[in-house]
Amino acid sequence: MIKNIASYLTLALTISVLLYASFKTNETIDLSEYSTKGLVLNYNMDLDANINDNIDASNDANEVFSPYLGKSFVGFKEALAFKESRGDYQCVNTYGYLGKYQFGKGTLKLIGINNPNKFLKDPKLQEKAFVANAKRNKWILRRDIKNFVGKKINGVLVTESGILAAAHLAGPGSVKKYLRSYGMNNFADGYGTTVSNYMKKFSGYDTSFLKADRKAKAI
């Protein structure tokens, strides 16, 4: 009994010392220099990914929080942005494509943006441009979405998000050719990325948020 009491007193004393030390310290963690630049991040998590670590001990489903974007529209655009530029708003590639989503100057003009330099410095405008361009592509490809979604081409299930991602890469005209040739006409960009690659990589996201709009503009 005496040994047990002594053990409890020792444990209590140890905890008190640790707590006192933690309150006395003036050290803080400086996060001002923290950056994800150069890190290899992965947005392509499987839908079955285990997120139990985010579940509160109460096991109340209403109290669960997870930063995992899944197959949401935000997940779609952020995954596409990461593939295009690793999410860098100021990125300009070797072919002159601009920003987080790597827009060409011709495409920017179609959605009302005539100042590429201003576009490159304006994250909000870049986000608006992505949505406007996707809405415009959805209108152009509306019949192909209706006719091909649910079918398999080159072993890849055709989905609306896959079509829209491929249109972002190659333009809606190239996607039409790919679908209507059943994969025989498979456009590749300057880095060798094909329509089929994007169809597969960005399959199954929820893009119902986007409404087809022939006249969609970012400005």
Rank of each mutant, 00 (worst) to 15 (best):
K200H: 06
V175F: 02
S203R: 03
V175L: 05
S174N: 13
H168R: 02
T194V: 05
N185D: 12
A170H: 03
A167I: 07
K176A: 06
G204D: 04
G171N: 12
S196Y: 07
M184I: 14
G183V: 08
G173M: 08
Y205N: 12
Y198M: 10
G173L: 08
G204K: 03
S203C: 00
L169A: 01
T193P: 03
S181D: 11
G171E: 07
F187L: 11
N186S: 14
Y198N: 01
G204S: 01
K201T: 07
V195R: 01
T193Y: 08
T194S: 09
V175Q: 06
H168Y: 07
K177L: 05
D189S: 14
A170M: 05
A165T: 01
G173H: 10
Y178M: 05
G173A: 09
S203N: 06
A165D: 00
Y198W: 04
G173D: 11
Y198C: 05
H168A: 04
G190P: 08
P172E: 09
K176L: 04
K176Q: 09
A170N: 00
D206H: 00
G171T: 09
Y205P: 11
M199A: 07
M184A: 13
V175P: 04
P172W: 08
G190C: 12
M184L: 15
A165H: 03
G192V: 07
G190L: 14
V195E: 00
A170K: 02
K176E: 07
A188D: 07
A170D: 02
G173K: 10
L179H: 02
G190F: 12
T194M: 02
F187D: 11
D206Y: 03
P172T: 00
A188R: 15
Y178I: 10
K200Q: 07
S203H: 05
R180D: 13
A167H: 06
N197R: 12
A170L: 04
M184Y: 14
L179Q: 05
N186E: 09
K200N: 08
Y178K: 06
S174C: 06
A167Q: 06
D189F: 13
V175A: 09
D206Q: 00
K177G: 01
N186W: 15
S196E: 13
A167K: 02
T193M: 06
A170F: 02
T207D: 05
T194P: 04
Y182I: 11
L179K: 06
N185R: 15
Y182W: 13
L179E: 00
Y191N: 13
A166D: 06
K201V: 02
Y205G: 08
S174I: 01
T193F: 07
A167S: 10
M184W: 11
Y182G: 08
A165C: 04
R180G: 08
M199P: 03
Y205H: 13
L179M: 11
